[in-house]
Design a protein around this nucleic acid. Structure first.
Lengths: 356, 356
DNA sequence: AGATTTTTGGAGAACGTTTTCCACGCCATG
DNA sequence: CATGGCGTGGAAAACGTTCTCCAAAAATCT
């Protein structure tokens, strides 16, 4: 009933604690007959090694702390899932800390996890600037990898999606399907996603398209802002709206429908991230899918390979290419279909050059 | 740089390890002057107690295992969040285990958590029947509370939403706003939600309404089934469709729109759970909000109060009443006002903020 | 055959706490 | 002046492992 320890297995198999430990851990060869007896005794008694004692002695808990801003952010659950599975595959467990988007709480949680002797930390930084101190300090104690959101260069290893590539995929797709007046709805924040996606849009769009006023609108990453941005952008008569985020895109979609603008007939809309709700949107949203599994795999890979003792060497930064998921919201305009009433009737004379 | 232990604090403050432990843990009175010296030394050296050693000695890790079927199920993240916060408020940490909806994996994870000496377990059962064994065995070792999904009576303490009340709220609301031919789209599974919600519908509806054919359609908890169920249900000309689940409701909404059926004009639609995507649905979905925070609070409360030593006494089962959230999808048919193109979402109480 | 290496097993010291004793000094009481 | 209760502090035994030494036995080499 009560937990059975090495001592009891040793007594039952008539040998010493050391021997039992050795045969069970396979840490040193042991006589065949002895090993058999030990294994049988362990089996019969239902021995399970106490991981806490093991951790104390071997200075490794087999545990990794996962710190994130908000588990309710719809992009994170799948990331958490992949991280958890990848770590479990290595026999490590996940200590979860949700810090409510607050860098102060984040710092406290990191500190708590360190007290609990986690072997390593995986951090999705709450704030690019204000998370920096805590992350840097923690990285001095254990291997630490920043995931998705970074915080400044040289703070710690960092693995994230390649936003530039993702934005390029979107723009190439839109241009290839005949869109020419492509606006951008993004966020003004300092987070890496906000900054990089905007920069990528400007670089790509500058190269591909004429520059016009009212072409870029920046607010925050909210549904609400997606809705209001539509009103600011429509006067410039776009035929496509690229959003820095799926939530923005859903907001844009809602407002466009409300105004009677046909998607994708009049305007194509695209998002970024591929959060679960986007294929429930109507029309289903074309978006950029982050390589969630690969991100997780790479992050735990990096965790393992910091030279165990001290953390030296340069910080590594890994960017993984995302994938374009084309859905209805960016379908090429069917030249045949009769258009229903629409205020924004500008593109009807143009024939899309590419089909399907 | 390297971790500082009790020994070093003891040496620095010129007293014994025992004394230091006592003053820091406040476990026994200690001379004022000595205490001051100890505290100062601890402060200066930056002493942080090693939780692993503490756990080994005091046989309590301050850690709770949280086992769930699929973190990507949109209902769970908010539950995880509340559980995590409630536990952290008690100074306990959360060891997360996602078991991919597979009871075998679930059993393995539970076993792993027990080896890691969690003080208690919080389990959202993957399968009402096939999770039972593992849960029952685990409950013999540590305090264990089933959350949301139970598995059979008498297995362990259980806290869940009161599905009957929730269903009654929905039906009362619909009847009060003039709906009379109310159909039900649910799931045929054996999970507690599927069973209880159906039973509640039948009990309530039987009392309030005439019974007709084609009134109840059972499939699974998928968007897809929501869509196809619409076609099976429409012939009976309902003026309301009650769904056992938000996902079903969204599917129903999509198909109804496709068929040109007006919601809520012709048919009202309701869901259950209030997952984050439902106020993005169009029209926004009337649904039953589970009392997530209270569920979490009650669960951790129950965890704490199992008589620490052994688990005896009867199993407790707590049901918490949910709350009806009325949104556009069940708005009363306006007899006077001519309908405009689209109703602005009315009751959106929540605006998810996504940032990355 | 003796001299070496290799194998096998045990005793016991860690790991960093908490906690149980026990000792000492001090004060009150008999 | 002895006896006993407090208040304060230290020595040392746990907790359940892993791992370093040693010792003995067995195998290999000259």
């Amino acid at each position: 009933m009560t937990d059975v320890t090495l001592r009891e297995v040793a007594r039952a198999s008539g040998c010493s604690v050391a021997t039992v430990s050795r045969v069970l851990a396979g840490t040193r060869p042991v006589g065949a007959e002895t090993a058999r007896r030990v294994r049988q005794a362990a089996e019969e008694l239902g021995y399970r090694p106490n991981q806490v004692a093991r951790a104390l002695r071997s200075r490794s808990t087999g545990t990794v702390g996962l710190v994130l801003p908000q588990i309710t952010n719809p992009f994170f659950p799948s990331l958490v899932r992949e991280v958890e599975h990848a770590l479990h595959a290595e026999g490590r467990a996940v200590l979860l800390a949700d810090c409510d988007d607050d860098p102060e709480i984040e710092a406290a949680r990191i500190s708590d996890l360190l007290d609990r002797q986690v072997d390593a930390l995986l951090v999705i930084a709450a704030d690019a600037k204000r998370s920096r101190d805590a992350v840097e300090k923690a990285a001095a104690h254990v291997p630490l990898v920043l995931l998705d959101r970074g915080c400044g260069p040289g703070v710690a290893d960092w693995v994230a999606t390649d936003n530039a590539t993702g934005m390029a995929l979107v723009l190439d797709h839109l241009v290839a399907t005949g869109r020419r007046r492509i606006c951008f709805v993004g966020a003004a924040g300092t987070g890496s996603a906000a900054v990089e996606r905007l920069a990528a849009y400007e670089a790509e769009a500058g190269a591909l398209l004429p520059r016009g006023p009212g072409q870029v609108e920046l607010g925050d990453f909210s549904l609400e802002w997606g809705r209001t941005a539509v009103d600011r952008i429509l006067p410039s008569r776009p035929d496509a709206v690229v959003c820095a985020n799926d939530l923005l895109a859903v907001g844009v979609l809602q407002r466009l429908r409300q105004l009677g603008v046909d998607v994708p007939g009049d305007v194509a809309v695209t998002g970024f991230d591929d959060i679960p709700m986007v294929d429930l949107a109507d029309p289903a949203l074309t978006t950029v899918r982050q390589p969630v599994r690969a991100l997780a795999a790479e992050a735990v890979h990096l965790l393992g390979h910091r030279p165990a003792g001290r953390n030296d060497g340069p910080r590594r930064s890994v960017r993984l290419a995302p994938e374009l998921v084309v859905r209805a919201s960016s379908a090429p305009r069917a030249p045949s279909a009769p258009r229903v009433s629409s205020a924004e009737d500008t593109g009807s004379t143009r024939t899309p050059e590419v089909e399907q």
